[in-house]
Simulated scan of single mutants.
Amino acid sequence: MTSTFIDRRDAGRELAALLSAYAERDDVIVLGLPRGGVPVAFEVASALDAALDVLVVRKLGVPWQPELAMGAIASGNAFYLDERIVDYAGVSKTALDEVIANERAELQRRETLYRGSRPPLDVARKVAIIVDDGMATGATMKAAAISLRRAHAPPASIVAAVPVAPLDSEARVAGVVDEFVCVLRPYQYLGVGQFYLDFDQTSDDEVRALLSQRH
């Protein structure tokens, strides 16, 4: 029987229990990957009594199979491309450039929508815990971590934290994060939604509401 979370908030509470070493520290910032990662991150930040912010990341999906990530982009001009998937899927440079342009426009829209005029929280010399609702290829988490590494004032360490991920997930982000924390690493893995009873899409309004509660 597959273990499941009730919803993203439930998953966040289970994930927070594994991150208790970071509770009530003034050097910890929780960064949710919108949209689905934000409800998870909200519960983590609440349990740890830590500040919460978003780190906007956009998956670069194969044009005719959008759920298959061939890379990702993130705030701060971070860019990650999996050349193996690009070659395997036969994506042309023209098609790739179009996907990147579209996702950059959406990334900017979300930055403005979620944060408005409020500047990002300062992660310099702090522990940045990047939270998503799950991991598949690892492209999104990699892009998020790379964006922090390349920041003018990077964090002291980066923790990738997700409720569920494939067995080899830690190896997929090795070298770009300092620690990987995960509740479930099942042998059979078809996708993140498989492990949630309620995996309805998170709305922009919910993201904004959760951020306002922890800011």
Rank of each mutant, 00 (worst) to 15 (best):
R110D: 02
T112N: 13
Y114W: 12
R115S: 14
P119Y: 07
P119R: 08
P119V: 09
L121M: 11
D122A: 15
D122W: 10
V123Y: 07
R125Q: 12
R125F: 07
V127C: 13
A128T: 14
A128M: 07
A128L: 09
A128W: 05
A128K: 07
I129R: 15
I129K: 10
V131Y: 08
V131N: 12
V131I: 10
D132V: 01
G134C: 00
G134I: 00
M135I: 06
A136V: 06
A136T: 11
A136R: 06
T137F: 08
G138M: 02
T140E: 11
A145G: 08
I146F: 04
I146D: 03
I146L: 15
S147E: 06
L148D: 08
R149N: 15
R149A: 07
R149I: 11
R150G: 06
A151D: 10
A151R: 15
P154S: 13
P154V: 12
P155V: 14
P155G: 13
A156T: 14
S157L: 12
I158A: 00
V159M: 05
A160M: 05
V162Q: 08
V162L: 14
V162R: 10
P163I: 06
V164W: 00
V164T: 05
P166S: 14
D168L: 11
D168M: 06
S169V: 00
S169T: 00
S169P: 04
E170Q: 01
A171Q: 03
R172V: 00
R172A: 01
V173K: 02
G175A: 09
V176C: 07
V176P: 03
V177T: 04
V177P: 03
D178I: 06
D178M: 05
E179M: 09
E179D: 14
F180S: 05
V181C: 09
V181P: 04
V181N: 06
C182F: 04
C182P: 03
V183Y: 01
P186K: 11
Q188S: 15
L190P: 02
G191Q: 02
G191M: 02
G191D: 01
G191N: 03
G193S: 07
G193C: 01
Q194C: 06
Q194V: 10
F195P: 03
L197F: 01
D198W: 02
F199T: 08
F199A: 05
F199I: 03
F199S: 03
D200K: 11
D200L: 09
D200F: 01
Q201A: 05
Q201W: 02
T202Q: 05
T202N: 07
T202D: 05
T202Y: 03
S203K: 04
S203M: 12
D205E: 12
D205F: 09
E206C: 13
E206N: 12
V207K: 11
R208P: 12
R208C: 15
L210K: 09
L211C: 12
L211P: 10
L211A: 15
L211W: 08
S212I: 10
R214S: 10
